[in-house]
Design a protein around this nucleic acid. Structure first.
Lengths: 210, 210
DNA sequence: GTCTATAAAGGGATAGAC
DNA sequence: GTCTATCCCTTTATAGAC
């Protein structure tokens, strides 16, 4: 019987390999590598365990495939916005808006990435590839220029980025605690995130006022 | 042979039970419940597996014991400061300072708690016990009073807390990524956190200016 | 490519001697 | 209380028929 915990991925227009990948993505993202079971993935994909090994040889290889796909899909979007040649305030607004939208649709991604960061930091860093991103250099330059022009206070890019990402991501990690603390329903939490699309840019920009 | 990954806990003045708990704490915090191995805990404690079961019966019970201890040690400190009857700015500074100090000494705690939040949200929430904390009520009242007096902008307590906690905790979760992005050594990261003790209260308070 | 059956390994838990 | 040896269930992985 099909496990109803996961959204239906039984569409017949998907190849077996695609079905497995979709199922594995859901299970791995929610359970992590150590917590996931091959049987559960097979059930979610509506095939038997043997097929998993036929297509991906081992659990580790399947996970690596999924992880690289997920990280490859999300990581590039993170920094590209901040590398654009547009006013700082516009980019911050755009970044927060797009980022919170993405996380609302994929709320388990942050924990998935951060858990893997614990076990294989070098792999995550390599795949994210942010070190070699030119976006950071441009942001760095922009922060310096604006500060010298007296438009904003001087701030280290590391703090700027840490603030921006922390404020955007962390509420999704702590969602159950926040919901308990402030008696939020799921709808309340969605509204809460919507409010943060406005609030976070305000917070970031107001702190940069000279 | 003793696993050198973990700090030495072989002091002979510790009882076997205490040695097990210390070892288990280190392994569980780093590997999580599903990822931890009883053999690894036994090795770290320099005893054999049978003793783990003799003292704690099962892996789940051992984990629960450790988890409750860890959470019981840290959770109460989180909100108590904010419940005190002191000026908002003083409390924010004090909170951030003490919180970052604690996290610097125990950098794996956030991931440990958040990972467990995925598998057993109700247990974490119950143990944290923040719902019934009067500290939140007092903070709520203080934010309202100050806003009505025109001293600060009006802000929902949920956003205030989310901002404060996000800015404080998240850098520890993303430490390897931040270090890679900004080429920080471990010493650099410590300095980075020191800077945030000043920066975060500034950020929070400046955003509250009317 | 897909299935059933089964091997092989891993790991939690226990028995029983000391 | 502490150890060795071992049980046995779970889970990964493979063999082989179709």
């Amino acid at each position: 019987m099909v496990n109803s915990l996961y959204i239906c991925i039984m569409e017949r227009d998907l190849s077996t390999e695609e079905r497995i990948k979709e199922a594995a993505k859901q299970v791995f993202i929610i359970k992590g590598l150590a917590g996931a079971r091959m049987q559960e993935i097979a059930d979610a994909a509506n095939i038997n365990k043997a097929m998993l090994h036929y297509y991906f040889r081992s659990k580790d290889q399947l996970f690596k495939k999924i992880f690289d796909e997920v990280i490859g899909e999300f990581a590039p979007k993170i920094l590209s916005i901040l590398g654009e040649k547009r006013p700082l305030e516009v980019k911050v607004k755009d970044f927060v808006h797009q980022y919170l939208d993405m996380l609302s649709k994929n709320p388990f991604i942050p924990l998935f990435l951060i858990s893997e960061l614990r076990d294989q930091p070098e792999h995550v860093i390599e795949k994210v590839g942010i070190k070699r991103s030119g976006a950071l250099d441009h942001l760095d330059q922009q922060l310096k220029t604006e500060a010298q022009a007296g438009n904003i206070r001087s701030i280290a890019p590391a703090h700027f980025m840490a603030n921006l990402i922390s404020l955007s991501i962390f509420p999704f990690l702590a969602k159950p605690i926040l919901q308990s603390m402030f008696q939020m329903s799921d709808e309340d939490f969605s509204s809460f995130i919507e409010e943060r699309k406005v609030l976070i840019p305000q917070l970031i920009m107001s702190s940069l006022k000279p």
